[in-house]
Structure formats: structure tokens, C-alpha cells
């Protein structure tokens, strides 16, 4: 029981990370109908920027409690600039091109960012400085620590904040208008380019937060960490219903649970035929199954497939 509870906690923590990243995917998709393949790399660069600035700030004697928000802000600003740049250079000129074109540039952007990060930060694993005592708490024998609790709460808070933004503000209304029909929105006086840029920047800022959380939780960052994380977060977004903010959260948590319970129990359940070596397969099977049987996802309203 205690082991089961621990697996649930593992899944929820991992799922919150997926959810944070999935929110970025889903925002861009909801508005542009574009899979921003490079989003995972933005997460990685956020983590790298946070670690670099944090190490630098601590190096010049800034107190940890001040350095932490400063470096978070720095990473978010950096990623916002990056997101803006990516959209301007790689996606905007192709807004009316056939669907495959922006997807191929997105793959290109992802490869370029990964290799640039490798040149800047090297191939080694960077360790995240231990700042706050990460004290463990016991819940019925299962263990959860401070950072993990923060990640979980943060993911929920950010989702709630985004919901408010989209449904209660002028900007949110403009976003929904652009998502509904770009031409009509333009005729109604919405500056489409601005709305799309802001969306990318918001998504990228979220990516920076997610990247920082991941590296704080696992204590490291690496130039390759973004790719698979991005892919799984995308799966989470599809599972929940892409374009739907609550769906991203739900999909993320579910995928996290599927992975941890799957990896934890598949060996015993299959009598040793399969094992945790198939952990990464679960996400892909979920992805294929959802797209084939319920392409609109769990909470999606709109039909996601169109010829």
C-alpha cells in the first residue's frame, strides 16, 4: 500500500511537470493549430538559463532567497525572447503555407536549438545548486519533498491563472477570437500578429518555469533533456484534448500516473515478460490510441482531425 501510494505521488509529480509543459503546447495549438515541436527545447533552455544565472548570482554573493526569483525572472525573459524570435523567424512566414511546412521548420528549430545549447553549455550534466533544505514529508509511509509539493501546486496555479487570462481579460478574448477565425478577428480590429506573439511568449515563459522546476527537482540539466520531455508533454496535451487548458492539466497528470504505475507494476502483472524497459513505450501507445479512437482527447470539444 505504501509502495502504491509512493507510485501515485511519483506519477503526480512527474505528471505536473508534463502538465506545465503541455500548457505551452496547448496554448499555441489552440490559437494557431500548429504543433510547436521546438517547445521542449525551450524548456531545456529555460533550465539552462536558470542554472547559469543562479550559479553566477550565488557566485557574486547574492543571498539565495533573492537569487532564486531573480534567476527565474531571467530565465523567463530569455525564453520569452526566444519564443518571440522562433515565431517571427520560423512560423510567421509560413502561416498560410501547407500544413507540413511549419512542422518541418519546427523540427529544424528543435535540432538547431538543441545543438546551439550544446555548444553554449557543453555536453556535460549541469547540477542545480542546493539552496533550500529540501525536507521530506511522510504521507502514510510514502515520501514527498518540498520541491515536489511546489511543482504540483505551481502547475495547478498556473493553469488557473491561464484560465482566468483566457476567459476574463481583453487579451484572452482576442486570443479566443484569433483561434476561432483569424480573418474575422482581424476585421474586428484584433491585431493578430500581436496576439500570436504574446501567446508564444507566454508559452515560453511557462516553459522556463517548467524547465527550472525539472532541474531543481532532479538536481541537473542537460542539453538533451527537452526532446523526450516535449514529446511526452505533447502526448499529454493530446490525451487531454489539445487546445484545452484543463485538458492539458488532466492529460499531464494521467500520463504521469500511467507511466509510474506502468513502470512499477508491468513486471509483476506480465509475469516478467515485459518490464520497466518498456516505460517510454506507454506514452507512445497512449498517443496512438487516443489519436485513433478519440482524436479530440478526453476534454476536447472540437474535432481535431480534418483532412
Amino acid at each position: 500500500m505504501e509502495i502504491f501510494l509512493q507510485q501515485i505521488i511519483n506519477g503526480l509529480v512527474q505528471g505536473s511537470v508534463y502538465a506545465l509543459v503541455a500548457l505551452g503546447y496547448t496554448m499555441v495549438y489552440g490559437i494557431l493549430g500548429l504543433i510547436n515541436f521546438a517547445h521542449g527545447e525551450v524548456v531545456m533552455i529555460g533550465a539552462m538559463l536558470a542554472i547559469s544565472s543562479l550559479t553566477a548570482l550565488l557566485g557574486i554573493g547574492v543571498p539565495p532567497l533573492l537569487a532564486l526569483p531573480l534567476s527565474a525572472g531571467f530565465a523567463m525573459l530569455g525564453c520569452m525572447a526566444l519564443g518571440y524570435g522562433i515565431e517571427r523567424i520560423a512560423y510567421r512566414p509560413l502561416r498560410h503555407a501547407p500544413r507540413l511546412a511549419p512542422l518541418i521548420t519546427a523540427i529544424g528549430v528543435s535540432i538547431v536549438l538543441q545543438n546551439l545549447a550544446m555548444m553554449v553549455w557543453g555536453r556535460e550534466y549541469h547540477s542545480f545548486p542546493q539552496l533550500i533544505a529540501n525536507s521530506p514529508h511522510s504521507i502514510g509511509g510514502a515520501i514527498i519533498n518540498d520541491i515536489q509539493i511546489i511543482i504540483f501546486i505551481l502547475a495547478l496555479a498556473i493553469m488557473a491563472g491561464l484560465m482566468l487570462l483566457v476567459h476574463r481579460t481583453r487579451l484572452g478574448r482576442a486570443m479566443r477570437a484569433v483561434a476561432e477565425n483569424q480573418h474575422a478577428a482581424q476585421l474586428m480590429g484584433v491585431d493578430i500578429n500581436r496576439v500570436i506573439s504574446v501567446t508564444f511568449m507566454l508559452g515560453s515563459a511557462l516553459a522556463a518555469v517548467a524547465g527550472m522546476m525539472v532541474s531543481a527537482n532532479y538536481g541537473l540539466a542537460h542539453y538533451y533533456m527537452g526532446f523526450l520531455l516535449g514529446l511526452k508533454a505533447f502526448t499529454a496535451a493530446v490525451l487531454g484534448g489539445i487546445g484545452n487548458l484543463r485538458g492539458a492539466m488532466l492529460g499531464g497528470l494521467l500520463l504521469g500516473l500511467i507511466e509510474s504505475l506502468g513502470a512499477g507494476y508491468i513486471g509483476d502483472l506480465s509475469g516478467g515478460v515485459f518490464g520497466s524497459n518498456y516505460q517510454d513505450v506507454f506514452a507512445f501507445f497512449v498517443l496512438i490510441a487516443v489519436l485513433v479512437f478519440r482524436p479530440s482527447g478526453l476534454l476536447g470539444e472540437r474535432i481535431a482531425e480534418r483532412a
Binding site: L34, I35, R99, L100, L103, L231, F234, V238, A283, F284, F285, L287, I288, L291, V292, P295, A304, E305, R306, A307
Partner: peptide
């Protein structure tokens, strides 16, 4: 039945 970009991700998987 999948549209282009979804198909890409599924084939990747």
C-alpha cells in the same frame, strides 16, 4: 484518418 501533423507525431512514436 489522421491529419498531416498528427500523422507525423504518430509515425515518430
Amino acid at each position: 484518418r489522421l491529419r498531416g501533423d498528427y500523422l507525423a507525431i504518430v509515425t515518430l512514436g
